[in-house]
Structures are given as structure tokens and as C-alpha cells.
Amino acid sequence: MSIIQVTNLSKIYQRPVKEPGFKGSLKALVKRSVLQKKALTDFNLRVEEGELVGLIGPNGAGKTTLVKLLCGIIQPTSGSLDVLGFKPGELKDAFRRQYAVVMGQKSQLWWDLPALDTFRLNKEIYGIPEEKFKKNLHEYVDLFGISELLQVPVRNLSLGERMKMELMAALLHDPRLIFLDEPTIGLDAIAQKQIRLFLKEINTRRQVTILMTSHYMDDIRHLCNRTIVINEGEKMYDGSLENLLTRFQGQRDVQVILSEPVGLGLNLPDGVTCRERQPYRLHLQVPRSQVKELLSSLLLQCEMDDIRIEDEEIGNVIERIYRSGREVFA
């Protein structure tokens, strides 16, 4: 059975609105109008045990709403949810004992105490037997190499160190399912990489199911074998990142260094766009199917020192997908 099963899930938020200015303030004192915001519309999802799923989408797309619904923090407006065989909204203890959630911007660690103190409290909350607690702690500390930091008050840790502690706090009770909301937000490249490695380990060796949201394409590229793109509360894509890219990375980036300046008379095949043109340098964008045609045309017309052909940046691709609107192609 799937570990997560979501059918026709919708969530609508109510938001107060107020006209600007003094008059608006006065009016709002008496009567306040409410705006309905669809955060999630007819969402369907199935996740099997052991999967590592990445959720991407622009701000306000509904990623966090989905995670909150799956945790049971908020209730759906309509549709059905089944997580680990439970209805999340009922917040049964047996349910909450089997998952963990890490929100990049909300820390569960006690700010002024060493992380170990929070771990000890979690031990009681989750009823982790002493032996298991020690064993897990030991393993994670080894994996991150941060044993000496356990005694340092959290407020004196760096952002990366804090996130490692955050992950440890979430994993000590051996959850089957972990929700990660922006786990690498604000971290430097090295810390991001360490976190990724750690998550990969947890997923492959312990078969922990991971559902993560992220703004960073690198997270998704290195971690997730399955990517879900959400935009404006709707699922736009569900599948591997590679497939997504082959479909949408229709363009190639071509950079040419010329040995002699080329005049204005340079003829480019139709469909090629010139992004930058300098006497000794050309930066072109060309559909994949036309790369060959472009190269032979260039070879005929000018002397080249160097040529570089690259995939279009993932970020650009994703941005284009967001902008392409409602078109569903799952």
C-alpha cells in the first residue's frame, strides 16, 4: 500500500483584505471583507514507501500547504488524505510518532540550550528507549562528524550546523516518513552538499520515505528520483527530473570565440536567437534539432578559436514551465 495517498485534495484559505489609507482603516473597523485564496486544487498524489520525492514550484504555489496537510497541521477544504494509514487531521499519537517534519524556517530546537537537551526531551515525547536513543545519536553524530557541537547552545551554532541538529532531532525516533520544507534554505554550498549526502544515506540505507520542497534545483537534481512541479495549487508535472528536462530543455546554449572579428553579414539559420554579439564572441541559443545546421553554417562563414555547447540552465527551464501556465502534462 502507498505510504501517502491523496485524492482530489483542495484547500482554500480565507484572507482579510483592507483598502489602503485612513478611510480604509476606518471602514475595516466595522466591516472586513475576506478574500478566498485557492492554495491547492484537485490535487492527486501517491507516494510509495522508500521514495524520495521533490516538490518544486514558485513561492505561494502550494508546496508548504501540501506538506502541512500531510502532517495534519491544517485540514483540507475537500478531498481525501491517507498518510501511513491514518487521516492526518485527526492527529493521532500513533500517526505522529511515525513521521517527522523539518521546516527550514521554524526550529524545534531550544534556542538557548545545547541541542542535546532538545534531543532528550524528544526522547520522552516519542518514548524512545534509552538504548535506541544512544545508538541513533551515535550514528548520526558519526555521520555528520559533529560530536563536539552537541554541548554548544544552539544560538551559538552556524546555520548549517543548526540544520544538521534539526535533522537529527527529527530522526532520532526512526520515522518512516520525513517532510522537509526548504531544508537547505540560506545554507552555503558546502553545508547544502552535506545535508544532501545525509538525506541520501537516510533514504537508501534506512528506506525512509522523504518528501521535500526546495527552491534549489541542485537539491532536486542530486536527491530526488521523482519530481513534482506545482504551480498555483495544481500539479503540473510528476515524474523524473530528466524526463522533465528532455521535454522542456529544448534549447542549447552555444558560445563561440572567434579568431577574426566577423562583420554584420553573418547569416544564421532561422530559429537561432542571438543573445550577445561582440566582435570576438557570440552567444547563441538554438533549438536542439538545429545544432548541427548551425555548426555547419558557422564553419563555412568564420574562423573559430573555441566553441562551447551546453544544456540550458535548469533554473531557466523551470521558470519557463511556471510561466507556461496551466498546461498539464503529467
Partner: peptide
């Protein structure tokens, strides 16, 4: 001062009570 006043009025429940 004016913006502060408007910020207060955003919370009508508090104002009335």
C-alpha cells in the same frame, strides 16, 4: 505617527475591546 495610527486600526477587535 499617521502610519502608526493606521497600523493600530488594522486590529479592530483590539480597538473595540
Amino acid at each position: 505617527g499617521a502610519i502608526g495610527m493606521r497600523a493600530r486600526m488594522a486590529y479592530r477587535f483590539d480597538v473595540w475591546l
